[in-house]
Simulated scan of single mutants.
Amino acid sequence: MISREEANFYQENGYLLVRDVFNPDEIKEMRNAVDLIISRAAQSKFDKNHTWEGDYLGDEDVRKLVLKGFHEVHYHHASFNRAAVHPNMVAVLQQLIGPNVQLHHSKMLVKPPEKGAAFPMHQDYPYFPHTRHTMLAASVHLDDADEENGCLHVIPGSHKEGALPHVGKHYLDHRTYPISLGTPCVAKAGDVLFFNYLTIHGSNVNRSARPRRNVLFQYRDPQDEPLMETHFDWGMGLMVAGENADYFRFRERFAVRNNKD
């Protein structure tokens, strides 16, 4: 799916945009699934705004913006299961991570037209730190994305800086790392942006009349051990390529609670 030169580009720069990973029919099915999830959530107690909060925007501006995000989308609709293990995805992942690839979690992020919230620059590392740093995100574009509707920006090579101190764990100081510092990753629907969890990334406000819908899958080598207890997501541990040779050592540990709320 990708050349040796492209794999080397990822290792050097910490990101890689791969074109046409999914065909139009697959994208249409995932778009419809995202709309269904949002529609169901709007009728339940689980509907909420996931807008980032902080001094990178004024309070009044933040209140006007909207970001819809839901974890474990592959439990909501089968189209995301198929996407997570799609042969085109696996072909890229095995060149970037290795022969053995495990799904860590999935989520969707939707920026509505004209009021989609920004993502300040940040690393994903603080949320789920691991020992070998094989963790990467695969951001599937369900819509064309450009600077007008808030495409992702990355700072090439920033993964080599290691873990950086974040404001309240969530984002980097916007005065040192403004979104404008990043390289815009303009993409078409069906393209996938792969980036290491140490790569600094973010995105601006959606000021267009178009939505920006993305589905994101986080993957790792199954023997890349977590450094600490991290947030639990249902579905952690699904093998999408190769084997988990040390399953009984590295399996996720969790407890099931009876929540009556």
Rank of each mutant, 00 (worst) to 15 (best):
T230W: 00
M228N: 05
P178H: 11
Q223S: 13
I179Q: 04
Y177Q: 00
A189R: 09
P222K: 02
V192N: 06
G190K: 06
G190H: 08
F217R: 02
G182C: 10
D191A: 10
I179F: 08
L193M: 14
M228P: 00
F232C: 09
L172T: 01
L181G: 01
T199C: 12
T230L: 00
G235Q: 07
E225M: 14
H174G: 00
S180T: 15
S203L: 08
S203W: 02
Y177C: 01
S203P: 06
V215L: 07
P222D: 01
P178W: 05
A187Y: 08
E225D: 12
D173F: 01
D233R: 15
S180Q: 14
D224R: 07
D233N: 14
F232Y: 15
V205E: 10
M236A: 06
V186M: 11
N204T: 14
S208E: 03
R207H: 09
N214E: 12
T176Q: 14
L227S: 00
N214I: 14
P178C: 10
I200Q: 04
S180W: 07
N196L: 09
L227A: 02
G182D: 09
S208Y: 06
C185V: 13
D233C: 12
V186R: 12
E225R: 13
I179N: 06
M236V: 12
L216N: 08
R220F: 07
D173L: 03
G182M: 06
G237C: 05
R213G: 07
L198F: 11
P184N: 05
Y171Q: 02
I200K: 03
L172M: 06
L172R: 01
L198N: 10
L181I: 08
H174F: 14
